[in-house]
């Protein structure tokens, strides 16, 4: 492990960290603009040209507000709740392959912080642990609305993780690897998984909406029933971290959807480019795909009404899971036929 390697990885980590935060901050601006557009309004336009400084103004406002801890709250758990949420939201970004390797200073720099051979399982691990921040925060507030939000969040996340995992297994079976790099490499050019597995993509996207607590699945913070849900008692930047981590996880989920179903940084005609040109175009293509999915997340939020809780559970357990199991079986059958397992060649 030489010095150049450490510098390279540290730089990459800092860039990805800052980028996630900047994208999350500007997602809030973008969300309000999209909402305004859908509702035929103007949206934020006071701070800076076109309201572009709005996220910074919001950040300053969040920091300046009084940081209040309720008297009956469990103090330490109340403090670490938002911290866990933002940490777990950021952690999957380390294994996402952001682009083809870049050549710089005579070194080949992989645009990925680290690579595990169980890559996709790492993301599922982070997702399944992600509910703790919300549960701890909601419970520690010692408020029944917060508790309801926390309990709803946990049951919702457990239910949708199953369908999400089953639909990801289909992709793993098609690729034959858990490694995100190989999943991307398999979708070279225009050979994207979404063309082979459209049903799987719809299931995965629905589950991603539920896992990020976005409308129409935003029952944990359902305003009309639960005031603010699990973050009712939070104020100042602690509330800011909760709101922020939602946008970070939208960003990471969009990146993941792009990697698993839309070929990551692959684009048609990529064989004509090599070296750094390919790396930069690949990076731009990947971020275009991510931006598109962030927009789709917002599009759905401002189009569909919220589900009722029993409808949510019904959709998760009685529709998505059976459909994904059937999809898994059909995929397995097709792979077995294709590989000629039923008759010897």
């Amino acid at each position: 492990m030489d010095l150049a390697f450490i510098i390279e990885k540290t730089t990459l980590i800092v860039i990805i960290f800052l980028l996630s935060l900047v994208i999350a901050a500007y997602s809030t601006y973008f969300e309000r603009k999209v909402a305004a557009w859908f509702q035929d309004r103007i949206g934020p336009d006071r701070a800076g040209p076109f309201g572009l400084l709005q996220p910074i103004a919001d950040g300053v406002k969040m920091f300046m507000k009084e940081d209040f801890i309720p008297k009956h709250a469990d103090k330490w758990l109340f403090i670490i709740g938002p911290g866990i949420t933002i940490f777990v939201a950021l952690i999957p970004s380390i294994i996402i392959p952001w682009g083809p390797p870049l050549e710089m200073f005579g070194r080949k720099i992989a645009l990925q912080v680290t690579n595990f051979d169980f890559g996709i399982l790492f993301i599922f691990g982070a997702l399944s642990v992600g509910v703790y921040g919300i549960m701890i925060g909601g419970w520690a507030s010692n408020n029944k609305y917060s508790l309801f939000g926390a309990v709803r969040a946990s049951s919702q996340m457990i239910s949708y993780e199953l369908a999400m995992g089953l639909s990801a297994i289909t992709i793993i079976m098609m690729t034959g690897s858990l490694d995100l790099n190989e999943i991307v490499a398999k979708q070279h050019g225009m050979n994207w998984n979404v063309f082979y597995q459209p049903v799987c993509f719809v299931i995965f996207f629905t589950c991603a909406l539920a896992e990020t607590n976005r409308a129409p699945f935003d029952l944990p913070e359902c305003d009309s029933e639960l005031i603010g849900g699990y973050h009712t008692e939070y104020s100042s930047m602690k509330l800011g971290l909760y709101l922020f981590s939602e946008y970070v996880s939208i960003f990471i989920s969009s990146a993941l959807i792009a990697v698993l179903f839309f070929g990551g940084f692959n684009f048609p005609g990529m064989d004509y480019f090599t070296g750094n040109t390919l790396a930069i175009i690949g990076l731009l293509v990947f971020f275009t795909k991510i931006s598109f999915f962030i927009f789709v997340f917002m599009w759905i939020r401002w189009t569909l009404p919220r589900f009722r809780f029993d409808q949510l559970m019904h959709l998760g357990w009685k529709t998505l899971i059976p459909v994904s199991i059937v999809n898994l079986l059909i995929t397995g059958l097709v792979i077995a036929l294709y590989e000629g397992w039923f008759w010897s060649n």
Binding site: L121, G125, S128, V129, V151, S154, S155
Partner: peptide, 28 residues
């Protein structure tokens, strides 16, 4: 045992303990 490590986190820390916590919170 990398695979075992990550499965331990997904299954035990991520699913079973969430259910434990869920029940305890409901009992309050």
């Amino acid at each position: 045992a990398q695979f075992l490590a990550i499965v331990n986190i997904i299954v035990y820390a991520g699913a079973i303990m969430v259910l434990f916590l869920f029940v305890l919170m409901l009992l309050n």
